[in-house]
Amino acid sequence: MTKKNKPKLIREDGLRHDGRRPDELRPIRMEVGVLSNANGSALVEYGRTKVIAAVYGPRELHPRHISLPDRAVIRCRYHMAPFSTEERKNPAPSRREIELSKVIREALEATIFTELYPRATIDVFIEVLQADGGTRTTGITAASLALADAGIPMRDLVAGVAVGKVDGVLVLDIDQVEDEYGEADMPIAMMPSLGKITLLQLNGVLTPEEFREALKLAEKGIREIYKLQREALKKKYVEIKVEE
């Protein structure tokens, strides 16, 4: 779409509009166990994108007809708070939120050992509190921390990041502006220890060579995010040790 007022996304010095290098992540903050009622929870920020994820379960739920006899059912809700976007977002689920709830559920189902809890349900809630690009990948990163915090057995944590192409350059961890005015936006999530991709979408146009490069760039970013996830999980326990 030829949008009006397209800003310059790559400056003369090769840096992005916010001063980052093309392969640089935004400042990332993660905190685990932020909600006392949920079985597991996490708050994750990629730059100004702020997302809380909460997990309830495994638990038996009624109506029984949605349960499966041999494994747990995952229910996942990706939702944006009305004040999270520039223009107020109607709280009713949009088609986008419905699609993202599905792809995120599928990304998490790949890692959870659902066969350990037949007939039970695991609920994953993702609320975007502030949206500035990359909300679904921030959400998945937070959701997998929340699942670990709840003690739900998983193959690996899932770490996500969105790679984009702006002004012809492949960039890591796009923000809202880069998403809106760029040529491509590729959210991707992986189980880094196992090298498995559980979420992959492309909105935009890439040549096959650009796509291969974008995958490599994403993998690099995901490894950095994975490191932060592990630290955030261990932090809860390490802090207590220090008190001794």
């Binding site: 792809v103 559920r105 599928e106 189902e109 790949a110 590729m186 189980m191 196992l194 498995k196 991709i197 559980t198 979420l199 992959l200 979408q201 492309l202 909105n203 935009g204 146009v205 890439l206 040549t207 096959p208 796509f211």
Partner: peptide
């Protein structure tokens, strides 16, 4: 050119 991509289903690649 690749004009779109979508991974679907609960598995992985």
């Amino acid at each position: 050119r690749i004009a779109g991509m979508q991974k679907m289903g609960p598995g992985d690649f």
